[in-house]
């Protein structure tokens, strides 16, 4: 058997996409490898699905990894009840289109104690409606592995995150005591109750995500594209003002602006950016000249120094 073949590919007649460049191909291969490894090694994997662009890429890679089979695990959406309306519509469309199993969970304390981003402040609200809700959902499903879309380039404490990130039975992460991870040999051995968060996108950067979305024609929530939308300015952020639950404070006025979102979280805590990027090309060129990082629009990161690390220790994504 000769050992060198030109890497020519026969296109599937349905596909008109040109082959991926070697950089994205390498990232894709690595992610698919991780998906398959986790699916084979764990009894009850689940994929954390936040509906954002990284989740969209994650879902696409999962479909690729298990083709021609279905995605062999459910998607878990922790719904705070304060997501953008377009996100929920998009989520349901994806589930339908790709024949996925969806588990959506909302912390019942949200309703019973009326926990909102306005009444409880972003830190406590996030703690209850995201971190605690995630723990509830993971416990209820008895999941022993959870895929997440976190990338190491996102935030300083994530730069040291493993691809298989070990969690104690109460979902805690101990950054000082992580398992060494060599080559692409992952240690999936855990005791009952313990779990692993697996991050197939660890080595991707934000630009990689967008270039991959473009190359693979992956559907994303329309909020990422610029459009005239109603906003209100609060705490230095432009917040989308379409939900009737958003009450204007004294001195605040609603106005229309051409905006888009660089990341998507809960609408009261996610700041829009002024942008005229209406296509993926526009977004990528905007990004390549951007002077601020993507999480700059996230209120929860700025609560205090090292705030993401603290949330992660407590079981946040």
């Amino acid at each position: 058997m000769p050992h060198t073949h030109p890497e020519t590919e026969l296109h599937n007649p349905q596909s008109t996409k040109p082959p991926l460049d070697p950089h994205l191909k390498a990232l894709e291969n690595e992610a698919i490898h991780i998906f398959r490894e986790v699916a084979a090694e764990f009894e009850r994997p689940v994929m954390l699905y936040s509906i954002g662009k990284d989740s969209s890429v994650l879902l696409h890679l999962a479909r690729k990894a298990f083709y021609p089979g279905r995605v062999p695990f459910p998607l878990l959406h922790v719904d705070t009840g304060w997501k953008f309306r377009e996100m929920i519509a998009f989520r349901d469309e994806m589930v339908e289109k790709y024949d996925l199993d969806l588990v959506a969970h909302t912390n019942p304390r949200g309703a019973s104690e009326n926990v909102t981003p306005f009444t409880h402040g972003s830190a406590l609200y996030t703690d209850i409606m995201k971190t605690e809700a995630l723990r509830q959902a993971l416990d209820a499903g008895q999941y022993d592995a959870a895929f997440g879309g976190a990338r190491r380039d996102e935030e300083a404490s994530r730069a040291k995150e493993r691809i298989y990130s070990f969690r104690t039975p109460d979902h805690r992460w101990d950054p000082r005591n992580q398992r060494p991870e060599l080559w692409n040999v992952y240690n999936g051995m855990i005791r009952k109750g313990e779990s692993v968060r697996a991050f197939p996108l660890s080595n991707w950067t934000e630009v990689d995500i967008w270039r991959y979305i473009q190359a693979e024609e992956i559907p994303i929530v329309p909020l990422y594209f610029a459009k005239k939308r109603p906003i209100v300015e609060r705490d230095g952020m432009m917040i989308l003002a379409e939900d009737p639950r958003l009450e204007l404070l004294p001195g605040e006025t609603k106005r229309e602006e051409v905006i888009r979102f660089r990341t998507l979280g809960c609408f009261p805590l996610t700041g829009a950016i002024r942008s005229h990027a209406t296509t993926l090309d526009d977004i990528i060129s905007e990004l390549e000249t951007a002077t601020v990082s993507e999480r700059q629009g996230r209120a929860i990161d700025r609560d205090q120094a090292g705030s993401m690390e603290k949330k992660k220790r407590e079981g946040y994504f």
């Binding site: 073949h5 030109p6 890497e7 020519t8 590919e9 026969l10 296109h11 599937n12 349905q14 596909s15 996409k17 082959p19 191909k25 390498a26 894709e28 291969n29 698919i32 490898h33 398959r36 479909r63 690729k64 990894a65 083709y67 021609p68």
Partner: peptide
């Protein structure tokens, strides 16, 4: 050699395939 969008006529080191 099966992949999601292509039926390939070769796979080389690094490729995740079926």
């Amino acid at each position: 050699i099966v992949t999601f969008d292509l039926v390939r006529n070769a796979a080389v080191a690094g490729d995740a395939v079926t």
